[in-house]
Design a protein around this nucleic acid. Sequence first.
DNA 1: ATCCATGATTTCGT
DNA 2: ACGAAATCATGGAT
Length: 424
Amino acid sequence: MDEQARIMQALGGVSLAGHSVQGGMGLQPPHGHDGTDDGRKQDIGDILHQIMTITDQSLDEAQAKKHGLNCHRMKPALFSVLCEIKEKTGLSIRGSQEEDPPDPQLMRLDNMLLAEGVSGPEKGGGSAAAAAAAAASGGASDNSIEHSDYRSKLTQIRQIYHTELEKYEQACNEFTTHVMNLLREQSRTRPISPKEIERMVGIIHRKFSSIQMQLKQSTCEAVMILRSRFLDARRKRRNFSKQATEILNEYFYSHLSNPYPSEEAKEELAKKCSITVSQVSNWFGNKRIRYKKNIGKFQEEANLYAAKTAVTAAHAVAAAVQNSQTNSPTTPNSGSSGSFNLPNSGDMFLSMQSLNGDSYQGAQVDTLRHVISQTAGYSEALGGNTMYSPNGLNANGGWHDAMTPSSVISPTEGPGSVHSDTSN
DNA sequence: ATCCATGATTTCGT
DNA sequence: ACGAAATCATGGAT
């Protein structure tokens, strides 16, 4: 374009300055015939004028004129002049051709799209990121619905991305061939080196790849939005199933003196509740803090779960007592939890422990203890003091400080209370 | 619309 | 790395 203008100018300069262009020009050297020489100059001037003004004309006009120029007798000569000039200016063109390194941003986008499974292989691969995210956000049945929803949305994005990409590619190819054709046609009137064509193609590809980058960018944005909407667990908090909460609460209240499940216990709970271990940890973290903050509020719940597990525990006690065929004088009437009275409850547990040792689940013992503490605390609760001292929860509100097994004495329970949470 | 329950995250201390 | 405490953000009941 402006290169063309430059060439024109150069050409014009050459001839207008009256330099005889020697060498492979094919022009006749002036032979002293003033008339012919002037005529030729006039001729060349005419042609140049036509060439210079060709861009200002309408397409049809230009086409017609081009044809005229093509058939002009001077054309080969002018053409070779152009060739020569181009040869000379070729270096400067090459110099301006920058070999751009792979764009880091484009690479980032590509990597991300690949990681998200948008630009990767069609099947399976796409779900890798989604699966990982889904696993992180936990939840089995409920989550799989979300997951499939997410997957379908991702597939949608992926499809759009691919069709658009294809469209761009097609358009790029079409445009390239179009330009190539044009250049080929133009090569009849002006010299066009393969390098130049290559360069032109490169320019086109760069332009199109910048459009592609925009596509990739917006695809990335879409995926990000999708991710944040569907997979950000915080955004999309789901309450655990009732069953899961039940299991967790049971464990919590039956280990009230030390509600810190071990890694194995957490795994077990996680499996039972179909949630992740970290969710179990979160749950216990939240539960502990909230329980401690407002014990009164959790009274009812505590009673409920304590009673619940106490039933099974009591059965176990009965069975155990029967099995051991004990004649211990301290063996109480092991029937309902409500029948336990405070003074000998501690003895009972002591005897139970001594009878069956480690075969007793700490959970059961703890639950019974809890029930007992509850029954003991009722009088106080009814009297207006709703604060009942939970097992192992010391005055500072800490569980950990009160955990020296031999010194666990619940204020409401009196002496003899045994804690046996170390079973799990 | 508002409030409370609840799961997750963040910050900080150990 | 784990837990306490504070906080965020959402779900669900009212």
